[in-house]
Design a protein around this nucleic acid. Structure first.
Length: 586
RNA sequence: GGUCCCGUAGCUCAGUAGGAUAGAGCACGAGAUUCCUAAUCUCGGGGUCGCAGGUUCGAAUCCUGCCGGGAUCACCA
């Protein structure tokens, strides 16, 4: 349960009474009434701006209206005290009993606490990675992959019906280059001396096995054929091999997809969806033949002023109209992407999220305008841009040269630092902020490393629970006993602080989901871990605060229930991030 | 030149749908601890939220303009 939503309902019910009593007009707008945690804990547990927002409508001074409301709220069972502060804030303090009630709910719901119905089962399509099937994934793909995967997890946790999708760009010129590169390796496999790989082809060794595969499949049959003849079959096999490799890369990072959607499938099988779509747009006067202004500033060298087939993107908020056909008559990437998004919509996804690299930022407006056009304004596309990741090793940037094919692959990174640290660090930053990824820091086992810090909190709790099992033996409480624990014994300030933090979890999940920002989960987990470690540390100096108290079994049971709940939330949150909640540190 | 993103403590970054005295970690400074449950702990200083206007009860947050950094700019993916 989201306690802020709960009290928001309660406050709005009181406001409704004020409407009945004629204090507020019948048509008063309550949409600006906020019920939130105050920034400063000394202001209480819950704060609302209701009086300030509604003062005008009530023709009262904010503080007077606040007093009136405060008087009513004070009578509520879970509310310990209410005070009016500042310009008219109403600050509410909840009773300890209420927090203990929340804790009991967490104990019962375990890892499901925080799961939300925010999404109400609405279908959402999240597309991420969509790396070209021309080679193994490199570090650059890491962030988007982890981000998209975690976002999908988050939306599921918040009650959306999520489809995770990968768009395979298997129709462009790049896969032809791939096919030619693979063909070269095929000739090599047949014993030919190929020398250095010509510029313009992919030089990586990863194509050698594809060459061998082609030899096994076709023998020498393709050697003396024309390119037009060998290219299509070679392309298919090469793409399949690349996708198999990419799937392994994704598995290594624990990144999942439900659908791998082939771009080529839009035009193959005698059913050209792109052509159909262009005609449909043309019928609606959204496609025309025309000329574009050359870009302002420096003119591209090979610019030629010519007539093109253009989509009226400007009608939907883009800066200029966009070409659908290339000079060679083929479809532009944009054209197939429109058809792809139209296809998503046709499959029942009015809500779409695309995760792209920041270098595609200039593409956002045109895609959003296209989505509006092909969905009659009913589709909604949010594009999340992931900024670059800067790889460092002990503070020194890692050199990468694309020319020599020497780039750090995703697999290298996962092998070196492990899947969990990679994932956590990729999410421990807002997606649109650049990210420094330092191999040295990420693997460090100290409290300075947030991955370790959060995982350690979980492991530490598991360790305490183990110890409790050893020490208490048969007295170790079962689930039913934990649910019925004497929560009222948890009255220390830092214990209540931990419980209050846990109580924020459902609201945080909903906000992270609404904003499509999984990093908020990572930061929350850090704060929760910090609360727990703090409590643990206090137990060092004040034995009274230790979790296991042989002299007070009831208190011990309550504390075990409390830290067990923290472990549940840590585990649930880490699960959203796709990071394992380990039970012990190695 | 256009568009998009960013600008918050010395550094790296959070900052809730517009809320109150703007936070954390690192670094720095001062103490505590050699005990223990597993990899120390506590406290402290530190800010023109890039600049200037605007919107309003109230702005780091929204709007406009400027400054600085990055990405991108017919046809490639």
């Amino acid at each position: 349960m989201n306690l802020f939503a709960h009290f928001s309902d309660l406050i709005k019910a009181e406001l409704a009474v004020l409407v009945q009593e004629g204090v507020l007009a019948v048509d008063t707008d309550f949409s600006r009434v906020a019920v939130e945690p105050p920034r400063d804990v000394s202001h209480g547990d819950i704060s609302t701006n209701a009086a300030m927002v509604l003062a005008k409508a009530a023709r009262m001074k904010p503080r007077d209206l606040a007093q009136m409301l405060a008087g009513r709220l004070e009578r509520q069972a879970d509310i310990a005290s209410v005070e009016v502060a500042g310009p008219g804030f109403i600050n509410i303090r909840l009773s300890n009993a209420f927090w203990h009630k929340i804790l009991q709910i967490i104990v019962k719901e375990k890892r499901d606490f925080g799961r939300s119905n925010l999404g109400r089962g609405v279908r959402v399509n999240v597309e991420y990675v969509s790396a070209n099937p021309t080679g193994p994934m490199h570090v650059g793909h890491c962030r988007g992959a982890v981000f998209g995967d975690a976002l999908a997890n988050l939306l599921e946790f918040a009650g959306f019906d999520v489809c995770r999708e990968y768009y395979i760009n298997d129709a462009g010129a790049q896969v032809d280059v791939l096919a030619r590169s693979a063909y070269l390796r095929y000739r090599e496999a047949l014993g030919e001396e190929i020398g250095e790989v010509p510029a313009g082809l992919y030089p990586g060794d990863y194509l050698k096995p594809v060459g061998v595969l082609l030899k096994e499949k076709f023998g020498a049959a393709l050697r003396d054929k024309e390119e037009a003849e060998w290219l299509p079959p070679v392309r298919i096999i090469a793409i399949d091999a690349m996708m198999a490799m990419i799937r392994e890369d994704l598995a290594a990072l624990n990144v999942r997809h439900d659908v791998f959607f082939s771009e080529r499938s839009l035009i193959s099988g005698g059913n050209d969806e792109i052509a159909a779509l262009i005609e449909q747009l043309r019928a609606n006067d959204l496609v025309y033949e025309g000329r574009l202004e050359p870009p302002k500033g420096r003119l591209p060298e090979d610019w030629e002023d010519r007539e093109q087939t253009l989509f009226r993107a400007t009608r939907f908020g883009d800066d200029t109209d966009r070409p659908l056909l290339k000079s060679d008559g083929g479809y532009t990437y944009f054209a197939s992407d429109i058809a792809y998004h139209a296809d998503k919509y046709a499959r029942g996804f009015a809500r779409m999220i695309d995760v792209w690299g920041a270098d595609h930022g200039g593409y956002v407006k045109r895609m959003q305008s296209a989505v509006k056009a092909v969905t009659n304004g009913e589709g909604e596309l949010d594009v999340k841009l992931c900024q670059l990741v800067r790889l460092l090793r002990g503070g020194v940037p890692v050199k990468m040269s694309k020319r020599s094919g020497e780039f750090v692959t995703l697999r290298d990174v996962v092998q070196e630092v492990g899947r969990d640290p990679v994932r956590f660090m990729m999410l421990y930053r807002k997606n649109d902020a650049p990210l420094d990824f330092d191999f040295a820091k990420v693997t460090e086992q100290s409290r300075d490393n947030p991955v370790f810090y959060v995982q350690y909190a979980h492991a530490r709790i598991c360790s305490v629970l183990h110890k409790a099992r050893d020490e208490l033996g048969a007295d170790m409480p079962c689930d039913a006993a934990l649910e019925a624990a004497a929560f009222a014994k948890l009255a220390d300030g830092s214990e209540l602080a931990l419980i209050k933090r846990m109580a924020q979890w459902p609201r945080l999940v909903e906000q992270a989901a609404m904003h499509h920002e999984p990093h908020r989960i990572a930061f929350f987990l850090y704060d929760l871990a910090s609360d727990f470690h703090g409590l643990w540390n206090r137990g060092k100096e004040s034995p009274d605060l230790r979790f296991i108290r042989a002299d007070d079994i009831k208190l011990t049971v309550a504390r075990l229930a409390m830290i067990g709940s923290a472990a549940s939330i840590l585990a649930a949150g880490l699960d959203v991030l796709g990071v394992e909640a380990v039970e012990e540190m190695r």
